[in-house]
Design a protein around this nucleic acid. Sequence first.
DNA 1: TTGTAAATGATAGTAACACTATCTTTGCAA
DNA 2: TTGCAAAGATAGTGTTACTATCATTTACAA
Lengths: 226, 226
Amino acid sequence: MEIQLQIKMNEKLFLRDPEQSELGKKIILHSIQLIHLNGFEAFTFKKLAEAIGTTEAGIYRYFENKHRLLMYITAWYWSWLEYRVAFHTHNIKDPVVKLKMVIKLLATTVEDDSRTSYVDESILHQIIITEGSKAYLTKRVSEDNKDHLFKPYKDLCAVIGNMILECNPQYKYPKSLASTIIEMAHFQNFFMNNLPSLTDFGKNKDEAEIVRFLETLVFSSLHSAH
Amino acid sequence: MEIQLQIKMNEKLFLRDPEQSELGKKIILHSIQLIHLNGFEAFTFKKLAEAIGTTEAGIYRYFENKHRLLMYITAWYWSWLEYRVAFHTHNIKDPVVKLKMVIKLLATTVEDDSRTSYVDESILHQIIITEGSKAYLTKRVSEDNKDHLFKPYKDLCAVIGNMILECNPQYKYPKSLASTIIEMAHFQNFFMNNLPSLTDFGKNKDEAEIVRFLETLVFSSLHSAH
DNA sequence: TTGTAAATGATAGTAACACTATCTTTGCAA
DNA sequence: TTGCAAAGATAGTGTTACTATCATTTACAA
């Protein structure tokens, strides 16, 4: 049984849909690899074009600029994660169990999903950790937000926020707690690997510890009488 | 009584110490303003030189490149904040009260400190929220870390981590909780103002609510039996 | 089979950016 | 007054971030 997973992306993220052509898929595949290799700052369309075997102009037909490409990639990631969350929490009734699953999905290394041939999810996860927040930490956030370019992130946050409310309908900050879980799942991972003294996981560098930290953080908030 | 506040900076952050000359101080003052105005990506040494009334070459005598200048500014901010934390928690014995003070200092708009003539702290606070994490979200983190360029941030984190342990010596993740407080104080502020649906503060846009959110987050963790 | 349009390839060019080099002037101190 | 560091002035280089144009291939439809 061969299933293809296709994610519908906001059309404002691209000039030409990269999923609709070989060149487009190559752009996604190689940009993820190159950003992972050199970091987003050193990543250029010229290098990307060389890696693919096309020219700069070819890339520009798909993406306005490299920041838009980053936004596309991050949006894709959050959409894919929301799908995974839906899949893995399906049929689970206990909201606590669901929330634990979400934390695990967020904070644990992912394996490449063979149903998406042109995206390597394990590398993607790595670059979202380091580069993901650069998608919105700009002067253009509000404009981009009006074009709904961050919708996948916000949707995921809303899903998690609702689970939090299921756990404790009285809890006052479901959305902020949700965005905290999302961001910290990534930042604690980055710190663990790069600035370990900002975490308590430096010795073992074990993602499972991040999961435990987030679980205590979340569930003591939700169970407390505040 | 006129007191000057001087912060000793790591010498690897600059080529020539900006605090030791008029031009240097102008570079700091105007770079903060320009980054605040246009964002870090659009900020260039040429624009900075024009704003100051000098040339690009003049700036390059002080800072290797604009990323180093950002690192200098953020390091300065964290040092200043650590000083403020020390000042405002001095003579307070109750660690819970101390920790609440820290959260307030982190999450609340600061006023310009008149003892530092060449730094406008209220603008500085704003740019650290948006640009601060770009100082370390790079491929060079580990190298830069070896040169101790993030020491002020790590020191602050350690100070907060110790307060956390004072509150509850059994708590397992003092450093991760500390870095979570620091990052979330800023990110929730950014989200509140730019992507409000990621928070529960969108309506009032009131920093006091961020403080309350962080307090419940922190103290339910510290008081719980986990 | 040919016609047509879309996608791609190939090449060129521009303005801005990120530097580096060099030479001159200024200020101030021994 | 000489000497030296800081700053000013000017120029230049390679790269980046795009835009434009025209030729070639492909795909499918008449």
